[in-house]
Design a protein around this nucleic acid. Structure first.
Lengths: 147, 147
DNA sequence: CTAAATCGTAATAAACGAAGTTACATGAAG
DNA sequence: CTTCATGTAACTTCGTTTATTACGATTTAG
C-alpha cells in the first residue's frame, strides 16, 4: 500500500531548517528529502497556514521556522496536515444495514479507535525540540555525512 | 488511501456462515458482501489454507466453517490474511543515511510500534464467538432485515 | 457418461490516492 | 527589468486493492 509519508517529510524538513540560520529554499529542501520542490511547497504551505513556518519570495527567500520547537508536537503536525487516515485497514462499508456487518464494524472500530487514541497521545508527547535533541545526540555520537 | 477491507470481509462472511446449517457458495457470500465471487474465493482460500474453513466443489458444494468459533481470534485472522500493513502513514525511507531522518524515523517508529502492539493485543482478545454473540444481541434488539 | 454446479487460479482491467512533474503566474531584491 | 523564489492549478506516474474475465478441475445427479 502507498503510505502517506508527509509527516515524516515535514519533520525532516523542519529539523534541517532548525539546523540553519537563514531560510532554506524549496529546492534545497527537496534535494535533502529526495523529492520535488513543488511537493515541498505544497506540504509546507499547510504548515504556513498554521503559522508554523513562514515563506518569502524572491532572492534570499525561502522557508524558515516561525514557532518554538519545544511547543510544536508531532500530533499538531499531523493535524496540520489534515489528519490523514492513520490505518490502512478498515471496514468495507461505514454505515451498513446488515446486522452482521454492524457487529463486525463495532468490534473493529473499537479496537482501531483505541490504537488511534494511543498513537495520537504518543505523538502529542513528542515535540520538535525532542527530535532536534535526539539528532544532536546522534550527531555527537557518529561522525557521518548528513543529507 | 485505499484501505484493505479483507478482515472486515472475512468476518462478515464467517458470521453469515455461522448462522447457517449447510455450506454457502461463493456467489451467495459475494451477494451478501456486495463483492465478486472470485474475490470471495481468493480471500476465503487463505482461510482454508489455515484450516479455518473447508470448501467443496460441485453441486451442494460451497464453504463451511471448520473451526471452533470461540477459538478463533481476530488477530489470528489478520495473520491468516498475511498480516497486511496496518498503518497508512509511514516513513519516507526505511533505512536513511541522513541522521536527521534517522532521528525522525526512530521517533515515529516507536510510536507506531506501540499502537500496533496495542491493536494486535486487542484483536487477540476478540473471538468469532464474541462477534456472533454481539450479532445475536443486536438481532434480538431490533427486528430488521439483514443482508 | 454427460450436464450442471461449483470451486481454483491466472491474467488483466479498473479504481483510487499519493507523489511527482509541468506550466505559468506572482512578488521581492538589486 | 531581470533574476530568484514562492503559489498554485493541471496533469502524469506509480503502486496497491478490488473487480472482472476466462478457463480449468472436480463433484453430483440422472
Amino acid at each position: 500500500m502507498k503510505r502517506d509519508s508527509r509527516l515524516s517529510s515535514v519533520l525532516h524538513a523542519l529539523l534541517h531548517m532548525a539546523e540553519r540560520e537563514g531560510p532554506m529554499t524549496s529546492e534545497e529542501l527537496a534535494a535533502c528529502m529526495h523529492t520535488h520542490p513543488v511537493v515541498v511547497r505544497r506540504t509546507m504551505g499547510l504548515l504556513r497556514e498554521a503559522g508554523l513556518v513562514r515563506s518569502a519570495r524572491g532572492p534570499q527567500g525561502g522557508w524558515r521556522i516561525s514557532a518554538d520547537l519545544a511547543a510544536v508536537t508531532l500530533r499538531q503536525l499531523h493535524e496540520t496536515l489534515g489528519e490523514p487516515a492513520i490505518f490502512a485497514i478498515g471496514n468495507r462499508q461505514e454505515m451498513p444495514g446488515c446486522l452482521v456487518e454492524q457487529a463486525v464494524n463495532a468490534a473493529l472500530d473499537d479496537a482501531f479507535a483505541e490504537a488511534e487514541a494511543l498513537l495520537l497521545a504518543r505523538l502529542g508527547q513528542i515535540t520538535l525540540a525532542d527530535l532536534a535533541a535526539d539528532f544532536s545526540r546522534r550527531h555527537a555520537g557518529r561522525r557521518q555525512g548528513n543529507t
